[in-house]
Design a protein around this nucleic acid. Structure first.
Lengths: 209, 209
DNA sequence: GGCGCTTGTTAGTAATCACTCAATGCCAAC
DNA sequence: GTTGGCATTGAGTGATTACTAACAAGCGCC
């Protein structure tokens, strides 16, 4: 009773405040569903950066809760990753599906995909799933994300399979350029700079034309 | 003195024989350079499968040596990964550079890239570097690999930057399809199956035409 | 105003990690 | 044939891991 545990007189000296950014006060009581959502958002950020190799402790600190609580809410680290990944796939496919069929569908889908880049974590997490390999459920979700993107393009635009392949291929190129942080390292490699410029022009041209 | 440490009456009971496949007899004595090459080859396989998250112990077992020896030969796990990754990047760029400039350069470069697929580990390891993120040296190598591929295409074929962008983008699509093991999961997703077919036709057409 | 459920914590555990240390056996040079 | 250097290992170390167990506190409900 001498040290009341609820008051938390000093936050963990230096380590706790690094990631945080979600909950400033040490986590007011929430409903389970709310907390689940919050942890899922944190997991998305953390897993996007380090992939499945990220620890549940990192996710917990990013969410502002204790580490045992995140594994309790999700059962295991694997299920947590899977939930975050499935949500990411759903978001990507929802964005592509938002384009109405008919004329202009191609531009709408391109725009929708480029808008996904605003979230630095979403496509990065998707990329991690592409090379997860070991986990069959993640692999299945990743394959579905790829296949549905291709199928949706044909369904909405009515264009040829070759055009659809080029659409998906261009998306993968954008993914990779974002994953390697190409724009942040301008001036480092002349070839890469030229590639980034060319991709930028293609995005602009396709968006305006 | 009662138990002589050098005799080793029984090899480690079950764990040592799992991966092996490189050295059947427990590793005859080699020169340091030879062993380094052998370990590098094992690291390529192991890192290609699990990325940087793979353990030095896995690499050691795959190479048929003890785990302390692999970290001693390379200084640290990070340097080992870097050496394996740099070698992979060099191989990719050497393959692309093998195409002579002038007419037919495009087909030669496409063929060279497709031939890289024969090694299931090479491009998979390259992919892991794309999303390494944390390690700056790996990121630099990955960016160089991308930029040089783009630059080489323009240099050898003399085609437009848009054509070069499509070439690199197609390469990234191939990388991803191989990473998710699309062909091994045929029948799982109709869209993906169609995409794989379309990519296969494009590769065939470009190789023969 | 106590009771039960849900939210959340601290403390602990067994496994695995990269890395270090000290030693052993092999080969070649003198 | 002894000595010295190189290849290689077993045994350990401290840190980190995912996960468990037990308990504490807030809230609705009668």
């Amino acid at each position: 009773m001498s040290t009341m545990p609820g008051t938390l007189p000093s936050p963990p000296p230096t380590v706790g405040a690094r990631i945080a950014a979600v909950a400033d006060q040490p986590s007011a009581r929430m409903t389970g569903a709310e907390r689940r959502e919050q942890i899922l958002a944190a997991a998305r950020r953390v897993f996007a950066e380090s992939g499945y190799a990220a620890s549940t402790d990192e996710v917990a600190r990013a969410a502002g809760v204790s580490q045992p609580y995140v594994v309790r809410l999700f059962g295991s680290k694997r299920e947590l990753f899977l939930a975050a990944y499935q949500q990411a796939v759903d978001e990507v496919l929802a964005a592509l599906s938002s384009a109405p069929a008919g004329p202009g569908a191609r531009e709408a889908m391109s725009d929708a995909y480029v808008r996904l880049l605003a979230d630095r974590d979403l496509l990065r997490l998707i990329m991690h799933g592409f090379i997860a390999g070991t986990d069959e459920a993640v692999g299945r979700a990743a394959r579905h994300c790829l296949g549905e993107s291709y199928r949706l393009f044909i369904e909405r635009t009515g264009e040829s399979s070759d055009e659809a392949r080029q659409f998906v291929a261009f998306g993968m190129l954008i993914n990779v350029l974002m994953a390697v942080d190409a724009t942040a390292h301008a001036g480092e490699d002349a070839g890469l700079d030229a590639l980034v410029t060319c991709v930028g022009e293609a995005v602009q041209g396709r968006a305006s034309a």
